[in-house]
């Protein structure tokens, strides 16, 4: 088990290495490159030369990459070209906001999606099932930025109950303000992901309902509730755990649009700003952190499987 975790953590290294190289060379392939971003469009030849000299941009790209890499190994992802602050510091400021939003959104998605899926699967083929499946289709089909706009229109513009722009308030500081600020963006994302959860879990519940071992359980004279709880649900949860992990990971860095709608200070908006201002060290740092978190959450899911699926043994 420890060996497995170590092995999976070791896999992070080549992934991040390849990804960082790809990003690095892509960024430098842009016309004008980072110099243009630094000096602006109306710069003189002297200014360009000075900036090129100052940042060592006249060296070959490969040399610059190795230079960056060596410093990255010491935990220095460079400076933002824009604010001149360390990239890691900027990311560190935004990451807690994004993590909190992702967690609350996933929680809302589970609270809504799991009961929906159960009700749907237990009444397969009925009008209730069709209604609930229609609702899931709607929840996952409606663009989150439009839902966000509608929610702002209703709760901020018309009812004036909630702020139109959501600030990041850590839950341990002021839970009430946290809820007031997070409910709209997290609700928007939660609604969307509940549709995914419901549709996926319904499918896997129906597959398991038809499994032979469920018929065996019924032939033993178990109550239907016991059959569902002890046999069907546990087996259906297996693939579902993976989906929850993927969605949670997706919200970290993937909630860009929702963060933009609610002007929420998360990692996604940092990336947008960095791309807009061609702040390449910042873009690169953000993408690497998002990749690393994705891999870590997947690792977490795999470790979880050891405890919920006896067939899995990483030795």
């Amino acid at each position: 088990m420890i060996g497995f975790v170590t092995w999976r953590l070791a896999q992070l290294v080549p992934v991040l290495l390849v990804a960082s190289a790809l990003i690095f060379f892509m960024m430098y392939a842009v016309p004008g490159g980072p110099v243009a971003a630094l000096v602006g469009e109306n710069a003189t030849q002297e200014q360009i030369a000075a900036v090129t000299e100052q940042f060592g941009l006249n060296r070959p790209v490969a040399v610059q990459y190795v230079d960056w890499l060596l410093r990255a190994l010491t935990g220095d992802l460079g400076q933002s070209l824009h604010s001149r602050e360390p990239v890691l510091k900027l990311i560190g400021e935004r990451l807690p906001a994004t993590l909190q939003l992702a967690a609350v959104a996933t929680l809302i998605g589970l609270l809504v999606g799991v009961p929906l899926a159960l009700a749907s699967a237990l009444s397969q083929g009925s009008w209730l099932d069709r209604a609930l499946s229609g609702w899931s289709a709607l929840a996952l089909g409606v663009p989150t930025f439009w839902v966000g706009i509608l929610l702002i229109l209703l709760f901020a513009v018309e009812l004036k109950l909630l702020p139109a722009a959501s600030a990041y308030v850590p839950v341990w500081q002021d839970p009430w303000q946290m809820i007031r600020n997070a409910i709209l963006p997290a609700g928007t994302l939660g609604l969307y992901v509940s549709g995914i959860f419901a549709r996926f879990l319904r499918g896997s519940l129906i597959t398991e309902f038809n499994a032979d071992y469920v018929r065996t359980a019924r032939s033993k004279g178990l109550k239907e509730g016991t059959v569902v709880a002890r046999h069907v649900l546990r087996n259906a949860m297996l693939p579902f755990v993976t989906i929850v992990g993927i969605m949670l990971a997706g919200f970290i860095g993937g909630a860009v649009v929702t963060e933009a709608v609610f002007t929420y200070p998360g990692l996604g908006r940092l990336v947008i700003q960095a791309i807009g201002s061609r702040d390449y060290p910042l873009v690169q740092g953000c993408i690497l952190v998002i990749l690393a978190i994705y891999i870590l959450i997947n690792l977490l899911v795999d470790v979880l499987y050891v405890y919920i699926d006896p067939r899995i043994d990483y030795g």
Partner: peptide, 23 residues
């Protein structure tokens, strides 16, 4: 439900799928 397991027991065909893999 009361009859099953008490009055009648069933042996199914494919033993690879008739048992719950998680129990």
């Amino acid at each position: 439900r009361r009859m099953r397991g008490q009055d009648v027991g069933v042996v199914f065909q494919d033993p690879s799928t008739t048992l719950n893999p998680l129990m």
